[in-house]
Design a protein around this nucleic acid. Structure first.
Length: 593
RNA sequence: GGCCCAGUGGCGCAAUUGGUUAGCGCAUCGGACUGUCGAUCCGAAGGUUGAGGGUUCGAGCCCCUUCUGGGUCGCCA
């Protein structure tokens, strides 16, 4: 009778449609059977509509409706009617109307599912992942994926409006031993040779600049075979871009504009531009991390100078060994910290960050610092601490005496934990900032390694430092930080051979090795490479932050578990011997347990 | 690889801290009901506590091993 399966969706009918004959398709979200009258909540991507079936609708319709169960797929033909006086449902946009059915058609029966999309308690995550098609029917999951789609569209529009062109780069590429562990793809044609999936399109986009494409952008899938976290998946999506004839300010300015647009469209907030900038050194000193959560204070205070004046061995010893004594202040909440809680925090900094212990002081009503260790510390030093931290009665001080690294990591860990626990910020609040001037190099055991990648340009004023003092050299690198998450990072690249050679030399990358690994880029740089720079934004993380979620899996339709498995498809799986044979691969027998 | 948390009918939780027959809500199945929207009411079925081993007169609970999921450190240029 009807040529079309449906005339409307389940989210669009309103009072203005009253009297119309329509056909809806969808899933039975819920049915309420009153014997004579049956109410069905029909659900699809767009919303829910209430369907009424009663004896006036015909026996066949009533009989079919009676047998419907949750998640059955149905098609309903009927007339849009106003709900009875006072029976509107204000929770639904379609709540003023209902569909009086005259035909009820079961399109497909649903087995009793392990859980229902509408149920109040969320099932365990492994079950949600195994039955992802059911989990994705949940309103929040649907909402997140819709918003993700809208965010990506908005990004693409922005860059298109700014003259960027979208160019795809290969997924099958070449392994570069630096950086994260690669996912490898064996070559059938080339015995013993492998492709690597891209960790990022880094080298290709630089080549595109050499090719003159000027402004490139891509929504790029990236792969890194490293252990997972709440904000890390083995495959993830970057908004990757590169620009020619620009400096760091130009790139950051472009992203400032993007963030302002996204914040306005999706959060309804007006960002003040330019976004605040913080140097790497400042970030480490004040927050102990290169990605600080700036929604609250609780800044780190360095009291190493005072520690040098005490005989107390823990403090003095740390400083004498070239370490630091640094701490944070919990304002007015000392009473919230039981001895047990402080013990837990001590275990936390010991276990997770290798701290030797946690020193703490309570500020007494008379303003004096009290601690189990305060009797070991000279009065002037205690007073100095109080002044340095600008303490008030009721404050709590937490101090670490350790290496720079441990104090940074430990205090950052404490600050993040306590900031959330004490509710020092509104979880809905958003803070955008840049961290700039990263070091060019860091020491890994005895050798220098690139902090970002070996093509990162140093600040021009730091060029002489490459020879004299590499550790002091700062890069033209910038990270976008949102709420304590690294939401993106980029650099201005080296575009001249001389600087590139110097950097390689420092990184102990011989010309031969360099030629072998990325000879094509080095060649390219000699054929008219423009100055260029770019950035990559973590789309999954940005979606996570913009939707207020605390893990990245909920922003991805089909994510992997912590052990990098897909519970729905059971990937990765074994393959047939024939396939292995074709690829010239032998699988080792796992060691006996 | 280290540390931490969790695993009990299909789902979410409980079990007085080692003591009778493992309990509740939702879902499922059957019945009743013409206005519900987390419908309601009556009834039924359904678990040996992730797996293996140990301690004990007795283990969901204690110990060891292991599997799965999650958090985190290392790792992630």
């Amino acid at each position: 009778m009807n040529q079309v399966l449906r005339t409307h969706n389940c989210g669009e009918l309103r009072s203005s449609n009253i009297g119309q004959e329509v056909t809806l398709c969808g899933w039975v979200d819920k049915s309420r059977d009153h014997g004579g009258t049956i109410f069905l909540d029909l659900r699809d991507r767009y919303g829910k509509t209430q369907v009424v079936v009663n004896p006036d609708c015909g026996e066949a319709a009533l009989r079919t409706a009676k047998e419907l169960r949750g998640e059955d797929v149905v098609r309903i033909h009927g007339v849009v009617e106003s709900r009875l006086e006072g029976k509107d449902n204000s929770k639904l946009p379609t709540g003023e109307i209902e569909l009086r059915a005259n035909r009820v058609e079961l399109l497909n029966r649903c087995k009793t599912p392990p859980f229902f999309p509408g149920q109040e308690e969320l099932p365990s995550e492994d079950l949600r992942l195994k039955f992802r098609y059911i989990d994705l029917r949940r309103e929040t999951m649907r909402g997140t994926l819709v918003k993700r789609s809208e965010i990506i569209k908005s990004m693409r529009d922005y860059f298109a409006d700014n003259g960027f062109i979208d160019i795809e780069t290969p997924i099958l590429g070449r392994s570069t031993p630096e950086g994260a562990r690669d996912y490898l793809v064996p070559s059938r044609v080339h015995w013993g040779h492998f492709f690597a999936l891209p960790q990022s399109p880094q080298l290709y986009k630089q080549i595109l600049m050499v090719a003159g494409f000027d402004r490139y952008v891509q929504v790029a899938r990236c792969f890194r075979d490293e252990d997972l976290r709440a904000d890390r998946q083995p495959e993830f999506t970057q908004l990757d871009l590169e620009m020619s004839f620009v400096d760091a300010d130009d790139v950051m300015g472009m992203i400032d504009g993007l963030m302002a647009k996204l914040a306005q469209e999706f959060l309804g907030i007006e960002l003040q531009l330019p976004l605040p900038r913080l140097t790497y050194d400042e970030a480490m000193q004040r927050y102990g991390t290169d990605a600080p959560d700036l929604r609250f204070g609780m800044e780190i205070v360095d009291c190493s100078d005072l520690a040098a004046q005490t005989e107390f061995r823990v403090f003095r010893g740390a400083v004498d060994q070239g370490g630091f004594v640094r701490g944070i202040k919990v304002e007015q909440r000392a009473a919230d910290f039981s001895r047990k809680r402080i013990d837990e925090l001590t275990e936390f900094v010991k276990n997770d960050f290798g701290a030797k212990g946690l020193a703490w002081f309570r500020v007494e009503p008379d303003g004096k610092l009290w601690s189990p260790i305060s009797k070991n510390i000279e009065e002037p030093v205690l007073q100095g601490l109080a002044e340095k931290f600008e303490t008030q009665p009721g404050d709590l001080l937490l101090l670490l005496a350790d290496s720079w690294d441990v104090t940074c990591k430990g205090l950052n860990g404490l600050r993040k934990t306590l900031g959330a626990e004490l509710g020092l910020y509104d979880p809905k609040q958003m803070h955008f900032s840049w961290v700039v001037e990263f070091p060019m190099f860091e020491k890994d055991e005895d050798r220098w390694v690139a902090m970002h990648h070996p093509f990162t340009a140093p600040r021009t004023q730091d060029l002489p430092l490459l020879e004299s003092n590499p550790s002091a050299a700062r890069a033209q690198a910038y990270d976008l930080v949102i709420n304590g998450y690294e939401a993106g990072g980029g650099t201005v690249r080296i575009h001249d051979q001389l600087t590139q050679s110097k950097v390689f030399e420092l990184l102990s990358i011989t010309p031969e090795v360099a030629k072998d690994r990325f000879g094509f880029l080095l060649d390219g740089l000699q054929y008219g490479a423009p100055p260029h720079g770019g950035i990559a934004l973590g789309i999954d993380r940005i979606v996570m932050l913009f939707t207020g979620l605390d893990n990245i899996r909920d922003c991805i339709a089909f994510p992997k578990t912590q052990r990098a498995m897909d519970l729905m498809t059971q990937a990765p799986g074994t393959v047939e011997d024939k396939q292995l044979h074709e690829l010239h691969i032998q699988v080792e027998t796992p060691p006996a347990k």
